[in-house]
């Protein structure tokens, strides 16, 4: 088991570095205009939208409620720490009753 853990740790570490490096080299080869640019510029938003969808699907009613509130607060205040705090407080509060 000990060796298996080390192999996984090192293997995943090297794989992660290769992934990070190849993203940059991939971007170097892509054309910097037209459809490719529009796609690349939309990529961060699409990625975070996908992440949030994944996290929300894994959560229950409490997480959905808190998530919706965080979205509203963030849209209104554009303040990351405040939005985060509101989310944590709602989840912590509602879980006391769950």
């Amino acid at each position: 088991m000990k060796n298996e853990i080390w192999l996984t740790v090192i293997g995943l570490g090297l794989a992660s570095f290769a992934i990070r490096l190849s993203g940059y080299f991939l971007a170097l080869r892509l054309p910097q205009s037209g459809a490719w640019t529009r796609g690349l510029e939309a990529l961060p938003g699409c990625l975070i939208a996908a992440l949030v969808a994944l996290m929300m699907l894994k959560g229950g009613t409490i997480e959905l409620l808190a998530g919706g509130t965080v979205l509203l607060v963030a849209a209104r205040t554009r303040n990351l720490p405040i939005s985060m705090l509101v989310g944590i407080l709602i989840v912590a509060g509602l879980r006391q009753f769950a």
């Binding site: 939208a49 808190a66 963030a74």
Partner: peptide, 17 residues
């Protein structure tokens, strides 16, 4: 509710993006 912190961060990024 601390496990929700990371979820809240990503949700809070959406309006800016």
């Amino acid at each position: 509710g601390l496990d929700f912190a990371i979820v809240a961060v990503f949700i809070a990024l959406l309006p800016g993006l």
